[in-house]
Design a protein around this nucleic acid. Structure first.
Lengths: 222, 222
DNA sequence: CAAATTTCTTACCGGACAGTAGACTTACTG
DNA sequence: CAGTAAGTCTACTGTCCGGTAAGAAATTTG
């Protein structure tokens, strides 16, 4: 009874509405548990509209994937744009990432966590988005390494390793951030930079971690 | 035709077989896309057996969750058991984690990646497992901090932050590890310790990262 | 206002799948 | 070799859901 008057809207607008809702529902329930009926209802229309505009459930999901990936990459690029030094670019990128996630949490969840093990087309789309992000971060890390003269010490593999670790940490910290609303994206970034960059700087300087010799364990006392 | 002779097996054994297969299938397909029929067939029995022994699909999933969580925590504890210093315990824990994941990749995936957004019971079980792991790592980080005299500088929140970052990094690195079969759990551990612990050591020593003043950007040249 | 176009709906189909009823079969036990 | 208990199966039900057919209402256009 809640005001059955549904105004007709041009396709462009409806399509975005549908995608908006779909991102929320996919994020909350996961691909399979999300029903097109529910998405349609929350979008204020009926199911055939979804199929008319987005072809299929898979098509709808891919549209979500694409839009959120675009948004994230845009935020990423926009943030690091005029920034010159590698460490500041990494900082800017991380801050953009945390901002994006705190403002588009659903989008990030759909993009990153629910896209595994689905159809070939979805896997491809999602893998591409992932690869784009990783390439971005790997680039930042690599230039950072090179500018600090560590080329001899760290190779491509190491840059990749570090990039994966940073992205994984940032992703996990997303959950932590959700439990600590007082934390700003800036604060998160500062903390993570503190943790990672200082370590890298010193590793590049030659300070490595090696297991210290056991002080009293192996053959001293017993 | 493929040898229809199914030997009868005692409940205990069948139950484990079912769970073994279920972990694989759940990991590959996710909870909703996994069908009990497929699990039963791969386990070499028929569907009613699954229901007889595990109650429901949800019960089956929870059984998987529980068993894999137990295995992981056991590996974790076993590894860090006789190890005395905090940094070595963290090292041992990480190595155990990487070993576990490379040997029980399916289990880890089920445990960590597919358990979100499902029923209340599943969410509870999975959250508990997660919390146990986080508590473990947070403890290692905290003792590490305290032993290095950083208590004044880093509080509970910081230990939690670092723990989340480490676990997230480790999780993401399992993907990287899957693409680099030459990497041993030991190598992964050394790399990650290098990245994290050296950084922490120096942050504790007072070396923080602050955005360097812009060399020429803000108000110098224009 | 009538024709044409676009937006939108109701009502249905077919398949997949969680869960069950009830009987059959092998293996112990005496 | 009966009797019993544990293991197992075939065959079914009801439901949920992706997808579609066929047409009704609004909006634009002549």
């Amino acid at each position: 009874m809640t005001e059955k008057r549904r105004r007709r809207l041009p396709r462009q607008v409806r399509e975005q509405q549908i995608i908006d809702v779909a991102v929320q529902v996919f994020s909350k329930r996961g691909y399979h548990a999300a029903s097109v009926d529910e998405i349609a209802e929350l979008a204020g229309i009926s199911k055939p509209m979804v199929y008319l505009y987005l072809e299929s459930k898979e098509g709808l999901f891919i549209a979500c994937l694409r839009r959120e990936a675009e948004r994230l990459m845009a935020a990423f690029h926009g943030a690091a744009d005029g920034v010159l030094t590698p460490e500041l670019r990494l900082r800017a990128g991380l801050r953009a990432f945390f901002s994006f996630v705190s403002e588009h949490r659903d989008g990030w969840v759909v993009l990153h966590r629910h896209a595994a093990g689905l159809s070939e087309a979805i896997a491809a789309e999602s893998a591409q988005a992932r690869r784009a992000v990783m390439a971005e971060v790997t680039g930042l890390v690599r230039t950072g390494i090179e500018e600090n003269g560590g080329a001899a010490r760290l190779g491509d593999e190491d840059a990749e390793f570090v990039a994966h670790a940073i992205v994984g940490a940032a992703d996990a910290l997303t959950d932590w951030m959700a439990d600590h609303p007082a934390e700003s994206p800036e604060g998160m970034t500062r903390r993570l930079m503190n943790m990672v960059w200082v370590g890298m700087r010193n590793v590049l300087g030659g300070e490595t971690w090696t297991p210290p010799p056991p002080p009293d364990a192996s053959a001293a006392e017993g």
